[in-house]
Design a protein around this nucleic acid. Structure first.
Lengths: 197, 197
DNA sequence: AGACAGATATACATTATTTGTCTACTCGTC
DNA sequence: GACGAGTAGACAAATAATGTATATCTGTCT
């Protein structure tokens, strides 16, 4: 079935940019078929409905993004650098593509309506990964959670909440990247162990 | 009627980016109304149909672009620089926005189907402006059309044809800007007077 | 050659969406 | 209070999309 899997992946890789560009409603099965270089009928050989295709696309996007996030967190360097990198990857893969455009909201809404489980699961997994990273860093005294009086899990969730808030604020003169970096700087200061207390 | 004209302009300025982004067919009157911050019913107070609105939009885009082109050609500096600037403006305003995307063709097709007269007229006017610029430059011996054996009008039309060809060639690794600059360099060499003949 | 799997083009009924129109209602201005 | 300009909402007709079915084509396997 790996042959079929490659076909599926090829279709989804073609479909995802179309969804990102036009949103869910304005993307027709004909658009996707054209982008994938196959006929509309063939599309229905691989997916029973537009919703099913979208769910598979959402799953693929989240899976790929989380794989990259995991790789970033598993890399070398100090924990904060790795986490900043991981957050940046997450933003780049799952948030930035919808550049605050008008149909971004529509796409997010469609995603929550049709693939809330996938999205929630991905968030849970990201939270877990960040929590583990924070935990390990705390044990090696690389970071100090004492002053914050917060658990790694709480901190991870705060980070994700902040990312969420930042993404919905492009109205201001602020950019996603800048806001993200600012928040990470904040975090960095808060958990950096101070020798003289 | 200047009050009404401002309303019209405001609607068109909101509508044009939507048309550019989604093409003609995928842009609904509801989309335009939302972009302009008015109700769909109000849209029909200013325009009797989507086609009429599109024609007005095409007209506005062409008028604004040609005004800028005219300003560029009327500026200081040598004729070739001014023409290169004018061509760049024309590209930026009327060609580059459709970044070779999938719906660019659809939009061009709609434009030719619904506003061919406007487009053709704009091209004629651009041709005239370039021709006059070339003429003036030839009279002051700033450029030398002798070796080319071409009239200013012919040269102007060649320039526009080249721009047209370049715009349809983004498949190659070439960019619109680079190709345009290359062509202008070519032109520059061909008409620069050489002292020693 | 014949069977077969996968793809395609085409047509189709069923929804869903869009267009253009109309009416009733609101709000600010004269 | 009349008026102009706007809005919300309903509406029929036209258009587009979805999902299904059928016939056809194209390679591959035996």
């Amino acid at each position: 079935m790996t042959q079929n899997d490659r076909k599926i992946a090829q279709i989804l890789d073609a479909a995802l940019p179309v969804f990102v560009r036009f949103g869910f409603r304005k993307t027709s099965m004909a658009d996707i078929a054209r982008a994938a270089g196959i006929s509309r009928a063939s599309l229905y050989l691989s997916f029973n409905s537009k919703e099913e295709l979208f769910r598979a696309g959402s799953m693929r996007a989240h899976t790929l993004a989380l794989d990259e996030v995991g790789a970033a967190l598993a890399g070398q360097g100090n924990a904060l650098d790795r986490m900043e990198m991981a957050i940046a990857v997450f933003q780049r893969e799952l948030i930035a593509p919808f550049g605050g455009s008008s149909d971004a909201e529509e796409l997010f809404a469609a995603n929550m309506a049709l693939a809330a489980d996938i999205t929630l699961d991905a968030r849970t997994r990201l939270s877990t990964m960040l929590t583990q990273t924070l935990n390990a860093a705390a044990e090696t005294k690389e970071i100090d959670l004492g002053p914050l009086q917060a658990s790694p899990l709480q901190l991870a969730n705060i980070m994700m909440a902040a990312m969420d808030g930042i993404k919905h604020a492009q109205w201001n003169g602020s950019s996603l990247d800048d806001d993200t970096k600012l928040f990470m700087r904040l975090l960095r200061v808060a958990v950096t162990p101070r020798s003289g207390q």
